[in-house]
Design a protein around this nucleic acid. Sequence first.
DNA 1: CGAAAGGCAATTGCATACACTTTTTGCCTT
DNA 2: AAGGCAAAAAGTGTATGCAATTGCCTTTCG
Lengths: 233, 233
Amino acid sequence: MSRKRSLIRSGTTVDQMVRAIGDRIVTGFLRPGEKLDEASLAARFDVSRTPVREALGRLSAMGLVERRPNRGATVAVVTQEHLASMFESMAELEAICARFSAERMTAGERRALEIEHQASARLVQLGAEEDYEYYNTEFHTRLYRGAHSKHIYELTVMTRSRLAPFRRAQFMLPGRLTKSWQEHNVIVTAIMRGDSAAAGHAAKDHVSIVSEASAVFAAVDPMKPAGSTGMSC
Amino acid sequence: MSRKRSLIRSGTTVDQMVRAIGDRIVTGFLRPGEKLDEASLAARFDVSRTPVREALGRLSAMGLVERRPNRGATVAVVTQEHLASMFESMAELEAICARFSAERMTAGERRALEIEHQASARLVQLGAEEDYEYYNTEFHTRLYRGAHSKHIYELTVMTRSRLAPFRRAQFMLPGRLTKSWQEHNVIVTAIMRGDSAAAGHAAKDHVSIVSEASAVFAAVDPMKPAGSTGMSC
DNA sequence: CGAAAGGCAATTGCATACACTTTTTGCCTT
DNA sequence: AAGGCAAAAAGTGTATGCAATTGCCTTTCG
């Protein structure tokens, strides 16, 4: 077998497979319910079945694929109900993080949060959706970290990654950027004055709104085909 | 290689390995930080390295073992800090479940919860710790299910399983059985009258108390050797 | 003509062999 | 004697082959 791997460099082979397959699921290139044949995937990426199997195992633990013994793996099918459940959980988790952040963030963390938040106002004015989405992720990550609770952090990040495929659409709604910033502003203000209850409620509402936005989008188009994102492949 | 497996029947080979290794970690037979050599484990259970590797992967996802690329797997070391973080998360998660249960449980679920809870009073009187622990698990599971949110359920069960090794000790404290029942009683009462806020607070307090009890125990003896449970081996 | 049983192809699960990385050990130099 | 380098040993990562299970298709019997 060829010794040199093609273009998907970095990390162990399994890591590459996890990223490669995971990306294709998250971007919708592989559709929910689609069968994931080990041999085909192995051939597709020019590796043996072993790393593919391990990658499928990890993706299964991440909730992106479903696996049944002796019956192979399929891209996880997320029902509207389960999706709602995940967003609901996300809202609760973010609320917890916001509460804890309001109570526990160091002076430095508060300052960094505030500064980045204020800086992001420019992105809203410019309507720079791409950049704002990046900032948005950073903002939430700061919240998760600020809770100073490793396990809460893990649970939250895990849930967020599972929701990733369904959140991309949120900023396509008109005016969402501005509203998002305003909602963030409420959260930041509450955290800065150490009002954990207010921070919690604000964070919960924020996610709930995102949830509704995504639900609207999902209702129209349960899982868009793909290619639209111009993924490498 | 021998075709017949020794006495650890049921499920695929990987499942058996997960159970076998996981049990040894949870019971303390394998100590935190201990190296888990793939070849040795494979030899020990008379299987090849392949299922052992997959089992280690799953246990890693469960948080019971830690894995570093090219450096093998070790039994996860849980710091006092991380442990506190997990209990804290558990308290929050149980609070959410209790709140949702108060709002969403069907009449049937409420009845079943109440009946089982009342029945368990006998176990307290008898001081039947083993049986009470079983009931206790059932009680909490009912709470998790009653929330009618699949994802919350998953997060909660996952967290509980990670805490399993540290909870066994809680009922060794004198009078803990009675107090536990009384705390459950507060939760049940709140749920029965649909008072979600009260149910949430009661559940949170309940876990916090368990946390403290375990912390006391853990402080004295971070991780007891083993054998004491007489695990099959 | 339909249904059930048996066989065949396809795919997963496990075992083993090989390659690459890390760690240890022993020898040589300073 | 101590430190460093190199080679071997140990252990993980990947590839490949074989066994076992599943699902489908065919065949046969009611």
